[in-house]
Nucleic acid binder design. Sequence first.
DNA 1: GTCCAGGTCGCGC
DNA 2: GCGCGACATGGA
Length: 304
Amino acid sequence: MTAANASTLIEETVPIGFDFKSTVYSHGWVALAPFHWDPIRAELGRTQELSSGNLVRLFIQLRDNLPRPRLQIRVHAAGAISEEDHEEIRHGVRRMLRLDEDFGSFYALAERNRDHPVRIRPGAGRLLRCPTLFEDIVYTLCTTNISWSGTKRMVASLVTELGEPFGAAEEARAFPRAGAIVQAGVDTLQSRLRLGYRSGYIWELARQVDSGELDLDRLEDPGQPTEAVRQQLLALRGVGDYAAATILMLLGRYEHLAIDSEMRSFVSEHYFNSGPVADDQIQLLYQPWGKWKYLAYWFDLTDS
DNA sequence: GTCCAGGTCGCGC
DNA sequence: GCGCGACATGGA
């Protein structure tokens, strides 16, 4: 790799009505390293290690003072930016902000569901993702059976301890490659990173991805039936109903609810006067939203 | 000290 | 198939 620093500016088109802030603030991912949100500049930052090994820092802003709003991505790179790097950056940004996801049938359903208590706000509903599915799955594993502060601590620990630093000053680090997690070993994940009993799950996932035994690109294939994808997710150690539904949401498939303590307490307070709620009742509540259940729940949550 | 958090697994029935 | 205890960790 070249030692020369490089920087460039990339512009991306956005869908009509794209709501940048709502996407960034959507479901908490922005609070997890190496995401960074600068509220003054309204700028989303993330350090990434590309498959070429090049390290980049991205600073993303929406230019909405133009006739046709678009994203402006400032790229600082540790080494020269190849054509492949450029494409990978663009692909990652479009994935993070779901710029290519179509919500048409959801809004059509919302129109038919006008009488349902859930209110839909136009433009919202793009829930922030990582540039890669691997990172999304590790994040999700770090949300199971732990408080949100624990999730932030564990993800920060992965980045700080195992992520590649950008430049000698180590001003920022990327999320670790699967190979770096494998190399660290389960004992390090547990004793030094304090990932608890998830250490084995995360290490095993990283090993499968790093060895090529698990091809995550296949899970991103929209041609696969949701149930088939779900079964492959459930086969991963540490992924149960909640995590599978969460990852499906991240894959743009909203038909399963990720029922967790958060959802139970929201539904209880909002619909059952803080009384006890069975999971079946939660399912029933969002049943009218068919394959868009999870998204309807999210609007419900953030509307209140 | 005890309880629990944006759960999951393995076991016994 | 269902119920139940164990599981790492740190904050309340």
